[in-house]
C-alpha cells in the first residue's frame, strides 16, 4: 500500500499543497481548512508538511460510535463518510496526531482521504517534498 511521504528538507512552505487539498475537497483555496498542514520552525529554516498517516491500527476508526470511518480497500485510506458522521468529535480525541478535525461550518469531521489514490497535494508540490509511494 502506498503512503504520503514527507521530506521536510525539501519543503519551502509555499502552501501549494494546502491550496490543492482544499480545492480538491471543497472547491476553494483555503489553508485554514486544509487536511495537510505545513508547520514552520525557526523563521522558516525548517518547514514540515504533515497529514494523516493512515495508521494501520486506526484509533479514529475504532473510536467512532456510528461507524462513519471506513477503509478504502484500494488505497488503505481511512475515510470519513459524511452521511454517517454526527460530529461527536470522539475521533478527534482518539487520534494521537491531531490530523482529524471538527469543522464547525459542516458539523462533521474531515481528514485526509488520499484523494482516492491520486493525492492533489503531491501533484501540487513544486519541490518533491510530498510524494506518494
Amino acid at each position: 500500500m502506498k503512503a504520503l511521504v514527507m521530506q521536510p528538507d525539501k519543503c519551502t512552505s509555499c502552501l501549494q499543497c494546502e491550496m490543492a487539498c482544499t480545492f480538491e475537497h471543497e472547491g476553494v483555496f483555503n489553508p485554514a481548512r486544509s487536511r495537510i498542514k505545513v508547520f514552520e520552525f525557526e523563521h522558516g529554516a525548517l518547514n514540515v508538511p504533515y497529514a494523516c498517516t493512515q495508521c494501520e491500527e486506526a484509533w479514529c476508526l475504532h473510536a467512532c460510535p456510528t461507524n462513519a470511518i471506513t477503509i478504502n480497500d484500494a488505497t488503505g485510506a481511512k475515510v470519513v463518510n459524511d452521511d454517517k458522521c454526527v460530529g461527536c468529535k470522539v475521533c478527534t480525541i482518539a487520534c494521537p496526531y491531531g490530523t482529524i478535525n471538527y469543522r464547525p461550518e459542516t458539523g462533521k469531521v474531515a481528514k485526509c482521504d488520499l484523494c482516492d489514490g491520486n493525492p492533489a497535494c503531491v501533484e501540487a508540490c513544486p519541490t518533491g517534498a510530498i510524494t506518494y509511494q
Partner: peptide
C-alpha cells in the same frame, strides 16, 4: 546560507534563510 524559502504560493522560493 541554510536553505531557501517561499512566500505564499510561490514555486520559485528565492528567499534566503
Amino acid at each position: 546560507l541554510q536553505t531557501n524559502k517561499a512566500c505564499f504560493g510561490c514555486t520559485i522560493a528565492c528567499g534566503r534563510i
